[in-house]
Amino acid sequence: MAGAKTFEVLSPGIMSTVQDLGRFGCARYGVAASGALDGFATRVGNLLVGNDENAAVVETTLMGLRMKALRDTVVAVTGGNLQPRSDRDLLPLWRSKLVREGEIIGFSGPASGFRAYLAVAGGFKVASVMGSRSTNLASGFGGFEGRALRKGDILAAGPTGDPVRFADRVFPPEAVPVYASPWRLRILWGPQDDHFSEEGRQTFVTAAFSVSPDSDRTGIRLNGPAVGRKPGLDESIISEGILSGAIQVPGDGQPIIILGETASGGYRKIATVVSADLHLLGQITPGDEIRFEAVAMETAVQALRELQNKIDKFKRSLK
């Protein structure tokens, strides 16, 4: 079913793309997951407006996105506080709100975090490609015409019946994540931690790393003391599958946290960010400081369960 024209892009800002929770099952064709980098904010945003958690949203980075509503609809902005504004009314984060035809919403810049998510009742209507509505920027497919949004693009949303019934829902403030540097990211060692020297491993979990301006949707590049590998090992390894959160260390010893746009790689991975902290990766900003804390598998799974419990509890409250 074709959706109704819902928003016109007046300015795309630094970078805005259509994303869902990612594309799975196509890694054997070299197709990475892509998807919203802050999956938690995406899920909550969709639930606020009455959607399935995996509906397509607009992910916008840093500042500058402005969109005009082409009909009355209900939206929710979640994720980083990029200071969303409406030309008519307040536009608070983490709650759903009715916007009127002609109303203009915009993002003026970060007070905290790096990426904001705009969910709309019915979900942004773009074709599902290989099982997902996420944008694959490297190959130019999925999302909105396989690319970042541009001025003049018209975004459609799915049918909702009467969206007003989803307005003014609130995600509990105590459950809203805190996005603040210095970041403390929990990691599990591996898959190739044994390729690093004891000193290299110590450096990794004791040093403060700063986030390089070269960071983008493919990876968060870090600057800090070099994380050394064991002597006699080559710079690269035989290429293998990879996923977001894996932390690779190239020859120069400066770690890179892999995000969602890479399906394989040939560098050693010293550690991997726990699933419960993955959503934070979408909010890390160039110039921020990061420290890594090694945890046990049970701790990581328990943390993920707690995050899932927040979502489940919220879902129950909506019924």
Binding site: A27, R28, S239, E240, G241, L243, S264
Partner: peptide
């Protein structure tokens, strides 16, 4: 997800 490499299979 299953992501095959030269000598390994990544199971997600």
């Amino acid at each position: 997800e299953l992501a095959p490499g030269y000598r390994s299979l990544l199971v997600v």
